[in-house]
Design a protein around this nucleic acid. Structure first.
Lengths: 128, 128
DNA sequence: TGGATATATGAACAACTCTTCAGATGGGAA
DNA sequence: TTCCCATCTGAAGAGTTGTTCATATATCCA
């Protein structure tokens, strides 16, 4: 398993080899990127944050997050497909809960920081 | 500041109010979602993972991550604009480093888990 | 049974994202 | 100066994503 792949020139060949070897498998990276992608939509994020405290039904999630119930349902479907949330049905209601402890940790970590730090807004204060 | 906003019906009005009050500000949520969005692309993720160990120049980043130098440059520009990475110039080379400790923590946490858990692939094993 | 309610789904469309290609910038060497 | 090389940039196009609207399913109540 030699290093080359792309025929680009390299400055520090040893570092390149070393870093390459430490790089997680493509599949793992793709999965991780996927998770981040699921957290990258403000409305989906709102849903998950709402679920941090415990289960809620679809209409309450819509009320809490200010989205249409259809939008909420679509979002939950996606999250459910990735086993990030799970549904408990009771009559015609569906109660969703945050199922994935890994995602919960990411949310906790992310929220802990946004509350204390000021984010950078490249559009406004032009970071060239 | 009363609770209603969307004229949707609500099942557990008290929970809805409580969760709403704990909900971070829209701006904070948007910033957090933005960060997750930056981590949601496999190639950008590769770049950041490569930078976990220390700075690298653009061409080495291209070699490590298997992307064109142009693609790398575009990606770094985005990350730079959000102050997630920073550039040190030396002659015609540009050495990038991971600047944001918050993002570093998210990466560490995320990678720690993907290496040990099996992700869900909804397309393959149909979670209806 | 029929009607109301909660949730789920499909299709369609606008908005956004990523890559690529071509060319620009700017430092270093001759 | 002139050429070369590393990096940067803009524009364009394919692909993806999120929302909406309309409709479907399924449960409850009368």
């Amino acid at each position: 398993m030699t290093v080359d792949g792309c025929a680009v020139k390299v400055v520090d060949a040893d570092r390149v080899t070393a870093v390459r070897e430490r790089m997680p498998a493509a599949e793992d990276l793709a999965d991780t990127a996927d998770i981040f992608g699921l957290l990258s939509d403000p409305n989906r994020l709102r849903l998950l944050v709402a679920l941090l405290d415990g289960e809620l039904c679809v209409c309450d999630l819509a009320a809490v997050t200010g989205q249409s119930e259809s939008a909420v349902s679509h979002a939950l479907r996606l999250l459910r497909a990735h086993r990030i949330v799970s549904a408990r049905r009771s009559g015609r209601m569906a109660y969703y809960r945050l199922e994935d402890p890994h995602v919960r940790m990411l949310l906790d970590l992310a929220l802990a920081h946004t509350e204390h730090t000021e984010a950078i807004h490249p559009e406004r204060d032009g970071a060239s």
